[in-house]
Design a protein around this nucleic acid. Structure first.
Lengths: 190, 190
DNA sequence: CGCGACGTTGATTTGCCTCAACGATTGTGG
DNA sequence: CCACAATCGTTGAGGCAAATCAACGTCGCG
């Protein structure tokens, strides 16, 4: 159970066998059907989700009623609304399965408990979020410095396999433009 | 020395007197003149900076040669390029003093050492970055959902005192538009 | 098989940028 | 302490990247 998560943790910190057992006892696994919501706007985010297989996304609804995707999580990524998770206040976001997805669930309560028992995991999560935040800093740089078309090509070169996996309208909003515009970029060249 | 940092840490974790001394021994303080650079593009980011008094910013130069401000740090905020700091690779960013600024410096080496000696600080930095990343998630939401004018008004309401503190051209680029446009927004109403 | 979700294409509109010229303010050296 | 330059902010004209709107093609699924 949860072996892919155990492998992931091993890349950052070493756990004793005891600790691994404690860890496992704090986790639960679940299979989620495509389009299922793990979190909805206004709800309090109760867990951090690790993707074993499949794909999740975070999005919100803008004033015109359109979905704006903010973040994707594929295999070996965690996803949550940290603001809501941390402060246990209502979320601004939806979290939804893009595909049928297998996840590991770490609830707030379990995480708090786990981090008290296994200090090494403080380090794991620190390194993890630091890496995630670094990626976010770079993403903001690209949002500010590249045109829509440049962002698409850049993303396409960086994650060619991933572009195939998600509907174009999700990708378009993630990259910060309309689905029609993405369609026109792709018509320009393959 | 570094008392404002000690106070800040106290809000998140408790340290013993011994630990506080170890901490102090790993830090250095410095006064930085306005416009001084702590990091330049292409350099490896060697430290994490805590602002005691004053203001720092991170920016990069876009293809047209203009400065694009990505982040500000005022009193009680840390700032660094986590990507470069973490992996010790060349940075994409500049870090510069907006005002004359007093900082506490925690070098990469000192941080590594410190976190080995004081596990509680792993927790401090985890909570800190988690909070920072949460703010970044929200910022991306606003970048995607609000017009330039809306972002300005929203920012102005959220941080009225701060808007007075930085040149408009820095604020404009932070909010994602040109200084001329900001000028026109302000002409619309006070 | 029919319906709804997704993608395409073209016409039109718009938010914001670019460029340029001109005030205001700051700070620095003579 | 003043003069002058550099920096910063303002204003207006014109332009462009991308949004919006609308209509139509297509595919997958119940």
């Amino acid at each position: 159970m949860g072996t892919s998560l155990h492998d992931h943790i091993k890349r950052y910190v070493k756990l004793t066998t005891d600790e691994q057992e404690i860890l496992t006892a704090h986790l639960s696994e679940q299979s989620i059907k495509k389009k299922t919501h793990l979190l909805k706007e206004g709800e309090i985010c109760r867990a951090n989700y690790f993707v074993v297989k499949g794909c999740l996304r975070a999005y919100f609804i803008n004033e015109k009623g359109g979905e704006q995707t903010c973040q994707f999580a594929i295999e070996n990524w965690w996803i949550t609304d940290y603001m809501s998770f941390d402060t246990q206040t209502p979320s601004h976001f939806f979290i939804q399965a893009v595909e049928n997805t297998e996840i590991v669930i770490l609830t707030k309560k379990m995480q708090d408990d786990l981090l008290k028992k296994i200090p090494a995991l403080e380090r794991y999560f620190r390194l993890l979020i630091q890496r995630t935040y670094a990626a976010s800093q770079l993403r903001i740089k690209y949002l500010f410095s590249q045109s829509g078309e440049e962002r698409y090509h850049h993303f396409n070169e960086s994650f060619p396999e991933f572009v195939q996996r998600v509907p174009q309208y999700m990708l378009a909003s993630y990259l910060g433009f309309s689905p029609e515009f993405l369609s026109k970029i792709r018509a320009g060249k393959t």
